[in-house]
Protein backbone atom coordinates (compact mmCIF):
# COMPACT_ATOMS: atom_id res chain seq x y z
CA UNK A 1 0.00 0.00 0.00
CA UNK A 2 1.28 3.46 -0.81
CA UNK A 3 0.75 6.53 1.38
CA UNK A 4 -2.47 7.67 -0.31
CA UNK A 5 -3.98 4.23 0.16
CA UNK A 6 -2.92 4.24 3.78
CA UNK A 7 -4.56 7.64 4.31
CA UNK A 8 -7.69 6.46 2.55
CA UNK A 9 -7.68 3.34 4.72
CA UNK A 10 -7.39 5.41 7.89
CA UNK A 11 -10.15 7.72 6.69
CA UNK A 12 -12.39 4.76 5.92
CA UNK A 13 -11.79 3.19 9.32
CA UNK A 14 -12.20 6.41 11.26
CA UNK A 15 -14.88 8.30 9.35
CA UNK A 16 -16.78 6.59 6.56
CA UNK A 17 -18.02 3.89 6.69
CA UNK A 18 -16.04 3.23 9.84
CA UNK A 19 -16.22 4.63 13.33
CA UNK A 20 -18.08 7.94 12.93
CA UNK A 21 -20.56 6.83 10.28
CA UNK A 22 -21.26 3.49 11.90
CA UNK A 23 -21.70 4.97 15.36
CA UNK A 24 -24.13 7.58 14.00
CA UNK A 25 -25.97 4.83 12.15
CA UNK A 26 -25.97 2.90 15.41
CA UNK A 27 -27.59 5.73 17.31
CA UNK A 28 -30.17 5.98 14.53
CA UNK A 29 -30.84 2.26 14.89
CA UNK A 30 -31.23 2.71 18.61
CA UNK A 31 -33.62 5.59 18.02
CA UNK A 32 -35.81 3.41 15.78
CA UNK A 33 -35.78 0.66 18.37
CA UNK A 34 -36.70 2.96 21.20
CA UNK A 35 -39.35 4.80 19.24
CA UNK A 36 -41.06 1.67 17.93
CA UNK A 37 -40.87 -0.12 21.25
CA UNK A 38 -42.35 2.96 22.92
CA UNK A 39 -45.21 3.22 20.44
CA UNK A 40 -45.95 -0.48 20.90
CA UNK A 41 -46.19 0.15 24.64
CA UNK A 42 -48.34 3.24 24.19
CA UNK A 43 -45.55 5.63 25.14
CA UNK A 44 -43.97 8.54 23.30
CA UNK A 45 -40.36 7.42 23.21
CA UNK A 46 -37.54 9.94 22.82
CA UNK A 47 -38.79 13.43 21.92
CA UNK A 48 -36.50 15.91 23.60
CA UNK A 49 -33.27 16.25 21.57
CA UNK A 50 -33.48 16.90 17.82
CA UNK A 51 -36.50 16.49 15.57
CA UNK A 52 -38.77 13.73 16.96
CA UNK A 53 -36.03 12.92 19.45
CA UNK A 54 -33.71 11.73 16.70
CA UNK A 55 -30.56 12.83 18.51
CA UNK A 56 -31.61 11.54 21.91
CA UNK A 57 -29.35 8.45 21.79
CA UNK A 58 -26.39 10.66 20.80
CA UNK A 59 -27.11 12.99 23.69
CA UNK A 60 -27.37 10.03 26.06
CA UNK A 61 -24.03 8.64 24.98
CA UNK A 62 -22.27 12.02 25.07
CA UNK A 63 -23.59 12.65 28.55
CA UNK A 64 -22.15 9.34 29.67
CA UNK A 65 -18.82 9.88 27.94
CA UNK A 66 -18.40 13.25 29.63
CA UNK A 67 -19.32 11.95 33.03
CA UNK A 68 -16.81 11.04 35.69
CA UNK A 69 -15.87 7.42 36.03
CA UNK A 70 -16.78 5.83 39.32
CA UNK A 71 -13.74 3.83 40.22
CA UNK A 72 -14.76 0.45 41.54
CA UNK A 73 -12.44 -0.45 44.34
CA UNK A 74 -12.70 -4.21 44.04
CA UNK A 75 -13.54 -4.81 40.44
CA UNK A 76 -11.32 -5.33 37.44
CA UNK A 77 -9.34 -2.36 36.09
CA UNK A 78 -11.87 -0.17 34.27
CA UNK A 79 -9.19 1.14 31.93
CA UNK A 80 -8.46 -2.37 30.65
CA UNK A 81 -12.17 -2.98 30.20
CA UNK A 82 -12.42 0.31 28.36
CA UNK A 83 -9.60 -0.86 26.10
CA UNK A 84 -11.37 -4.14 25.41
CA UNK A 85 -14.62 -2.34 24.57
CA UNK A 86 -12.71 0.10 22.35
CA UNK A 87 -11.11 -2.77 20.43
CA UNK A 88 -14.62 -4.06 19.85
CA UNK A 89 -15.66 -0.69 18.47
CA UNK A 90 -12.62 -0.58 16.21
CA UNK A 91 -13.25 -4.14 15.04
CA UNK A 92 -16.72 -3.17 13.86
CA UNK A 93 -15.31 -0.03 12.23
CA UNK A 94 -12.62 -1.97 10.41
CA UNK A 95 -15.02 -4.69 9.31
CA UNK A 96 -17.11 -2.16 7.38
CA UNK A 97 -14.24 -1.92 4.91
CA UNK A 98 -15.39 -5.19 3.39
CA UNK A 99 -18.69 -3.60 2.41
CA UNK A 100 -19.33 -2.12 -1.03
CA UNK A 101 -20.22 1.27 0.48
CA UNK A 102 -16.60 1.78 1.53
CA UNK A 103 -14.32 4.00 -0.61
CA UNK A 104 -11.44 1.54 -0.18
CA UNK A 105 -12.52 -2.06 -0.42
CA UNK A 106 -10.50 -4.90 0.98
CA UNK A 107 -11.26 -8.24 -0.55
CA UNK A 108 -9.56 -11.60 -0.25
CA UNK A 109 -10.66 -15.21 -0.48
CA UNK A 110 -12.19 -16.44 2.78
CA UNK A 111 -12.62 -12.90 4.10
CA UNK A 112 -15.99 -14.07 5.44
CA UNK A 113 -14.15 -16.02 8.13
CA UNK A 114 -11.65 -13.21 8.75
CA UNK A 115 -14.66 -10.94 9.30
CA UNK A 116 -16.12 -13.27 11.90
CA UNK A 117 -12.83 -13.67 13.75
CA UNK A 118 -12.21 -9.93 13.80
CA UNK A 119 -15.75 -9.31 15.03
CA UNK A 120 -14.91 -11.57 17.94
CA UNK A 121 -13.21 -8.54 19.49
CA UNK A 122 -16.62 -6.89 19.81
CA UNK A 123 -17.93 -10.00 21.56
CA UNK A 124 -14.98 -9.84 23.94
CA UNK A 125 -15.96 -6.25 24.70
CA UNK A 126 -19.49 -7.35 25.64
CA UNK A 127 -18.15 -10.14 27.84
CA UNK A 128 -15.53 -7.98 29.52
CA UNK A 129 -18.12 -5.43 30.65
CA UNK A 130 -20.06 -7.93 32.73
CA UNK A 131 -17.11 -9.96 33.96
CA UNK A 132 -15.22 -6.89 35.10
CA UNK A 133 -17.90 -5.88 37.58
CA UNK A 134 -17.55 -7.05 41.17
CA UNK A 135 -21.27 -7.70 41.46
CA UNK A 136 -22.66 -11.17 40.81
CA UNK A 137 -25.28 -9.75 38.43
CA UNK A 138 -22.68 -8.60 35.95
CA UNK A 139 -21.05 -12.01 36.05
CA UNK A 140 -24.36 -13.79 35.57
CA UNK A 141 -25.15 -11.45 32.68
CA UNK A 142 -21.84 -12.17 30.98
CA UNK A 143 -22.20 -15.91 31.62
CA UNK A 144 -25.54 -15.84 29.84
CA UNK A 145 -24.03 -13.77 27.07
CA UNK A 146 -21.25 -16.34 26.79
CA UNK A 147 -23.72 -19.20 26.59
CA UNK A 148 -25.52 -17.45 23.76
CA UNK A 149 -22.26 -16.52 22.05
CA UNK A 150 -21.22 -20.17 21.91
CA UNK A 151 -24.19 -20.82 19.65
CA UNK A 152 -24.48 -17.45 17.94
CA UNK A 153 -20.85 -17.01 16.85
CA UNK A 154 -20.63 -20.27 14.91
CA UNK A 155 -24.10 -19.61 13.49
CA UNK A 156 -22.97 -16.17 12.28
CA UNK A 157 -19.76 -17.56 10.86
CA UNK A 158 -21.41 -20.48 9.10
CA UNK A 159 -24.24 -18.41 7.63
CA UNK A 160 -21.94 -15.63 6.39
CA UNK A 161 -19.56 -18.25 5.02
CA UNK A 162 -22.27 -20.20 3.23
CA UNK A 163 -23.99 -17.17 1.74
CA UNK A 164 -20.63 -15.91 0.50
CA UNK A 165 -19.75 -19.37 -0.73
CA UNK A 166 -22.99 -19.68 -2.68
CA UNK A 167 -21.95 -16.62 -4.68
CA UNK A 168 -18.20 -17.04 -5.03
CA UNK A 169 -17.57 -20.75 -4.52
CA UNK A 170 -16.85 -22.85 -1.45
CA UNK A 171 -13.08 -22.35 -1.61
CA UNK A 172 -13.26 -18.58 -2.12
CA UNK A 173 -16.23 -17.60 0.08
CA UNK A 174 -15.47 -13.91 -0.13
CA UNK A 175 -18.13 -11.84 1.63
CA UNK A 176 -16.92 -8.63 -0.03
CA UNK A 177 -17.31 -10.16 -3.49
CA UNK A 178 -20.59 -11.81 -2.59
CA UNK A 179 -22.12 -8.44 -1.73
CA UNK A 180 -21.63 -7.12 -5.25
CA UNK A 181 -22.23 -10.38 -7.12
CA UNK A 182 -25.25 -10.96 -9.33
CA UNK A 183 -27.96 -12.90 -7.57
CA UNK A 184 -29.51 -15.89 -9.31
CA UNK A 185 -32.05 -18.57 -8.53
CA UNK A 186 -29.39 -21.08 -7.45
CA UNK A 187 -28.26 -18.83 -4.60
CA UNK A 188 -31.75 -18.52 -3.15
CA UNK A 189 -31.79 -21.56 -0.79
CA UNK A 190 -28.54 -20.60 0.91
CA UNK A 191 -29.55 -16.95 0.90
CA UNK A 192 -32.91 -17.57 2.58
CA UNK A 193 -31.64 -20.09 5.14
CA UNK A 194 -28.54 -18.07 5.88
CA UNK A 195 -30.64 -14.91 6.06
CA UNK A 196 -32.94 -16.41 8.68
CA UNK A 197 -29.95 -17.55 10.73
CA UNK A 198 -28.24 -14.20 10.38
CA UNK A 199 -31.39 -12.32 11.36
CA UNK A 200 -31.61 -14.29 14.61
CA UNK A 201 -27.90 -13.70 15.14
CA UNK A 202 -28.50 -9.99 14.76
CA UNK A 203 -31.34 -10.05 17.29
CA UNK A 204 -29.29 -12.07 19.76
CA UNK A 205 -26.11 -10.07 19.41
CA UNK A 206 -27.84 -6.73 19.70
CA UNK A 207 -29.70 -8.04 22.77
CA UNK A 208 -33.22 -7.64 21.43
CA UNK A 209 -36.11 -9.49 22.98
CA UNK A 210 -36.57 -12.45 23.28
CA UNK A 211 -32.77 -12.75 23.43
CA UNK A 212 -31.99 -9.94 25.86
CA UNK A 213 -31.36 -12.61 28.47
CA UNK A 214 -27.99 -11.17 29.52
CA UNK A 215 -29.69 -7.88 30.32
CA UNK A 216 -32.51 -9.49 32.30
CA UNK A 217 -33.49 -6.49 34.37
CA UNK A 218 -36.51 -8.00 36.00
CA UNK A 219 -35.46 -11.35 37.40
CA UNK A 220 -32.23 -9.95 38.70
CA UNK A 221 -31.21 -6.47 39.67
CA UNK A 222 -29.56 -6.01 36.29
CA UNK A 223 -27.55 -7.68 33.60
CA UNK A 224 -24.12 -7.22 32.12
CA UNK A 225 -24.25 -3.48 32.69
CA UNK A 226 -25.65 -3.74 36.22
CA UNK A 227 -23.08 -1.49 37.82
CA UNK A 228 -21.27 0.06 34.91
CA UNK A 229 -21.41 3.80 34.54
CA UNK A 230 -19.73 6.84 33.10
CA UNK A 231 -17.48 6.65 30.02
CA UNK A 232 -17.36 2.86 30.20
CA UNK A 233 -21.13 2.65 29.89
CA UNK A 234 -20.99 5.27 27.14
CA UNK A 235 -18.50 3.20 25.17
CA UNK A 236 -20.58 0.10 25.79
CA UNK A 237 -23.62 1.89 24.38
CA UNK A 238 -21.60 2.85 21.30
CA UNK A 239 -20.42 -0.74 20.93
CA UNK A 240 -23.92 -2.13 21.33
CA UNK A 241 -25.42 0.32 18.82
CA UNK A 242 -22.63 -0.23 16.32
CA UNK A 243 -23.03 -3.99 16.60
CA UNK A 244 -26.75 -3.72 15.87
CA UNK A 245 -26.18 -1.31 12.98
CA UNK A 246 -23.36 -3.40 11.54
CA UNK A 247 -25.35 -6.61 11.55
CA UNK A 248 -28.42 -4.88 10.12
CA UNK A 249 -26.22 -3.43 7.39
CA UNK A 250 -24.70 -6.84 6.71
CA UNK A 251 -28.19 -8.27 6.38
CA UNK A 252 -29.17 -5.42 4.05
CA UNK A 253 -26.14 -5.69 1.80
CA UNK A 254 -25.52 -9.44 1.86
CA UNK A 255 -28.92 -11.05 2.24
CA UNK A 256 -31.24 -8.37 0.87
CA UNK A 257 -28.66 -7.67 -1.86
CA UNK A 258 -28.20 -3.94 -1.21
CA UNK A 259 -29.59 -1.87 -4.06
CA UNK A 260 -31.01 -4.88 -5.95
CA UNK A 261 -32.74 -4.64 -8.48
CA UNK A 262 -30.99 -1.28 -9.00
CA UNK A 263 -27.21 -0.82 -8.78
CA UNK A 264 -24.64 0.99 -6.68
CA UNK A 265 -24.09 3.45 -9.53
CA UNK A 266 -27.71 4.56 -9.32
CA UNK A 267 -28.48 7.21 -6.64
CA UNK A 268 -31.88 5.58 -6.22
CA UNK A 269 -30.07 2.38 -5.35
CA UNK A 270 -28.59 4.07 -2.28
CA UNK A 271 -32.05 5.23 -1.26
CA UNK A 272 -33.19 1.65 -1.64
CA UNK A 273 -30.34 0.49 0.62
CA UNK A 274 -31.56 2.97 3.24
CA UNK A 275 -35.14 1.73 2.91
CA UNK A 276 -34.04 -1.89 3.24
CA UNK A 277 -31.89 -1.06 6.26
CA UNK A 278 -34.80 0.63 8.01
CA UNK A 279 -37.04 -2.29 7.08
CA UNK A 280 -34.62 -4.76 8.65
CA UNK A 281 -34.39 -2.73 11.84
CA UNK A 282 -38.15 -2.20 11.94
CA UNK A 283 -38.86 -5.91 11.52
CA UNK A 284 -36.44 -6.84 14.26
CA UNK A 285 -37.85 -4.16 16.54
CA UNK A 286 -41.42 -5.21 15.85
CA UNK A 287 -40.60 -8.81 16.74
CA UNK A 288 -38.66 -7.63 19.75
CA UNK A 289 -41.49 -5.40 20.95
CA UNK A 290 -44.09 -8.12 20.68
CA UNK A 291 -42.26 -10.91 22.49
CA UNK A 292 -41.23 -11.54 26.04
CA UNK A 293 -37.86 -12.61 27.28
CA UNK A 294 -36.90 -16.28 27.27
CA UNK A 295 -35.03 -18.14 29.94
CA UNK A 296 -31.39 -18.75 29.13
CA UNK A 297 -31.69 -22.42 28.25
CA UNK A 298 -34.78 -21.71 26.15
CA UNK A 299 -32.94 -18.92 24.39
CA UNK A 300 -29.86 -21.00 23.68
CA UNK A 301 -32.01 -23.90 22.50
CA UNK A 302 -34.02 -21.62 20.22
CA UNK A 303 -30.85 -20.09 18.79
CA UNK A 304 -29.36 -23.53 18.39
CA UNK A 305 -32.35 -24.76 16.44
CA UNK A 306 -33.25 -21.80 14.31
CA UNK A 307 -29.87 -20.15 14.00
CA UNK A 308 -27.12 -22.75 14.21
CA UNK A 309 -28.95 -25.65 12.59
CA UNK A 310 -30.48 -23.40 9.94
CA UNK A 311 -27.05 -21.98 9.16
CA UNK A 312 -25.71 -25.52 8.80
CA UNK A 313 -28.62 -26.19 6.45
CA UNK A 314 -27.56 -23.09 4.51
CA UNK A 315 -24.04 -24.53 4.34
CA UNK A 316 -25.52 -27.75 3.02
CA UNK A 317 -27.55 -25.86 0.43
CA UNK A 318 -24.50 -23.89 -0.69
CA UNK A 319 -22.39 -27.04 -0.88
CA UNK A 320 -25.11 -28.88 -2.79
CA UNK A 321 -25.32 -26.02 -5.24
CA UNK A 322 -21.55 -25.86 -5.63
CA UNK A 323 -20.63 -29.53 -5.85
CA UNK A 324 -23.70 -31.07 -7.43
CA UNK A 325 -25.50 -28.49 -9.54
CA UNK A 326 -22.55 -26.51 -10.89
Amino acid sequence: MNSIEVLLYLFAVAVFPGFIFLSLLGTFTEWIERKVAARAQNRMGPTYVGPVGLFQPIADILKLLWAKELVVSKGFSWRTTLFLVSTGVMALSAATLLMPISPIRLSTPLDSLVLVYVLFYSTLGFLAIGFSSPSPFGVVGSSRMLSMICVVEPAAAISIYSISASFTGMDTASVSKAMIAEVGLQQLPALILGGVALFLVMMAKSLMKPFDIPEAETELAGGIIADVGGPLLGMFRILHDMEAAFLAMLLTLLVLRGPYPLSYADPLGWVLIGVKFVAVVLTATAISASLGRLRIEQGVALLGKYSLLVSIAALGAAALNYYVVV
Binding site: V13, A14, F19, L65, E69, R79, L82, F83, L84, V85, S86, T87, G88, V89, M90, A91, S93, A94, A95, L106, V114, V118, Y121, P231, G234, M235
Partner: peptide
Protein backbone atom coordinates in the same frame (compact mmCIF):
# COMPACT_ATOMS: atom_id res chain seq x y z
CA UNK B 1 -4.12 -5.57 8.97
CA UNK B 2 -7.49 -5.72 10.71
CA UNK B 3 -6.07 -6.86 14.02
CA UNK B 4 -3.36 -4.19 14.00
CA UNK B 5 -6.05 -1.61 13.24
CA UNK B 6 -8.21 -3.00 16.03
CA UNK B 7 -5.51 -3.05 18.69
CA UNK B 8 -3.82 0.25 17.83
CA UNK B 9 -7.15 1.98 17.16
CA UNK B 10 -8.65 0.53 20.31
CA UNK B 11 -5.72 1.79 22.33
CA UNK B 12 -6.02 5.29 20.87
CA UNK B 13 -9.78 5.35 21.42
CA UNK B 14 -9.51 4.08 24.98
CA UNK B 15 -6.77 6.57 25.86
CA UNK B 16 -8.80 9.36 24.27
CA UNK B 17 -11.93 8.49 26.22
CA UNK B 18 -10.04 7.99 29.45
Amino acid sequence: IFSITVIVGGLILAVFVA
